[in-house]
Write a protein that binds this DNA or RNA. Sequence first.
DNA 1: AGTCCGCGCGCG
DNA 2: AAAGCGCGCGCGGACT
Length: 572
Amino acid sequence: MIQYIADIEQACIALKGLVSESEIGLDIETTGLDPILDSIRLVQIATPLKTYVIDMYHVPTSVLNPLLTGGPIKVIHNSKFDAGFFYQAPDGVMVEPIFDTMITDQVLHHRGYARSLKDLSKEYLDIDLDKEKQTSDWGVEHLSEAQIQYAAQDADVLLPLKHIQEEQAMELQITSVVNLENRLVPAICWMERSGVSLDRHLWDELVKSAEAKAVQLKEKLNLSVAEHTSSGLDLFGNAIVSVNWDSPAQVKKLLSDLGVKVENTRHSTLEANRGKHPVVALLLDYRGAAKKVSTYGTDWKKHVHPTSRRIHANWVQIGSATGRMSCKNPNMQNLPREAAYRNCFRAAPNCVLIKADYEQIELRLAAEIAPDPRMKKAFYEGRDLHSVTASYLLGKSTTETVTDSQRQMAKAVNFGLIFGMGARGLSSYAQNNFRVQMDENEAAEIRRRYFEAYSGIKNWHELQSSKLETRTILGRHRILEGERDYTNRLNSPIQGSAADGLKLALINLWETRHQVNAYPVLTVHDEIVIETSKELAGKAAKWLKRCMEDGMREFLREVPVAVDITTKESWG
DNA sequence: AGTCCGCGCGCG
DNA sequence: AAAGCGCGCGCGGACT
């Protein structure tokens, strides 16, 4: 039964009954996808016996607030979308508690991608949702009967879906992960709606210099090729070279003509062939500048919102198969680490950005999960694991005599070998990323010594190799089949547990936000950045640190959690 | 003109 | 016996 409501009195009457429900299906139709520029047209609320379709052109959103915050569990598909609109509305509030059927589906199937409500309805309820009306015009004065019917249908499937998913979660013993993810939604919505501010002028300067550099290097490349081939110079002394330096295929062919035969033109390959032709070194430099121009160029600024003047990236709560988040439009998680780039992200006037990151979190988790007694000991004695590893590999008695480059080498070894890197991989990895010469035999020897020193890791590798599914400490699962997945068996529980801990930290921020006026603006796997006023900086820093420590400590019990924190006006 | 894929590379 | 993992994006090139 559907009741269409288009006046405040009717809405209030309906609301009185609804607030005492334990759970309701909730869906909205909007005039567009942007919660700042567009508005909510319909709110559909489903109970087991009755579905309300409320026309928000005649009812202020705030009338629904008592239902949205507190009260029944709101069962929503892709709730960040709906919550964003309610949060952004005049007198808006956060929707909670939430049960998100899209997120829950991802947890159940350890998917790094989301499935539509249509797909879930078909699979679990054998209901064919007609999505034709989804993109119809929701801004018209009089909605058609078909539009209202469609809207109600979408809300109707949510409660039955939740019950099936809860049962599945029980069977899979994954309820704790489902709960974590559902609690997280408001925090992510909060962060996304907060956005982050970009200093366009600083950014422009960087783009300008990258562009100049790219142009200059491209000229040098062309000249260099002209010198070494039959192609000549034009009347103005410019090289006549018709190779597109942004095309790996063309570059590969050109290198071949110059006597440098390569399998591919990726950085590591070029690095290995640096000495063979002057063009190679130039090409490496050009690649660096070209990447800045293309990926972090002037186009990047289009993501600044015209109204809020901030960047509201799309945070994907379960963005990977391991449970990590991802981020797009723009991706805030792969900006160049150079201070010049990160300093473009600035706090509002009289505010600061506080950046906090977990120190060596994956290695700490590996030490505890394996477990490896020696590695654990190094951590709870507060020693630097990379130096410790270097001293073991080099046969030194103390870590004091370890040089910086030796520590760098050990860092690569720690990351690589824990996650199943072989001798060949280690050899090329050391060469490519650390300019460390290490042939395959030497790499094999280092590998042998490594697992001698960390026998707990070795045992854990053997244990993991036969598993059909991995679990994080919280219980997040990933099904793995086939020998090929060996390294995933090692990586998933570690990467996933780190993700779980960070997510709990974000939840802690949201659920204790009354303690200090501050909000998160971005997060990068082991790092959270918040914004607050200068006066509150000290208090907020402590709050952030505490939330992060408490979150991760839930999973990292025997090895200490270390959070490094810095406060500045910018992110860099 | 639009779509898809591989390559390469930025980050953790 | 051997095997690093996880993303998003811009580009070229091939296809429709």
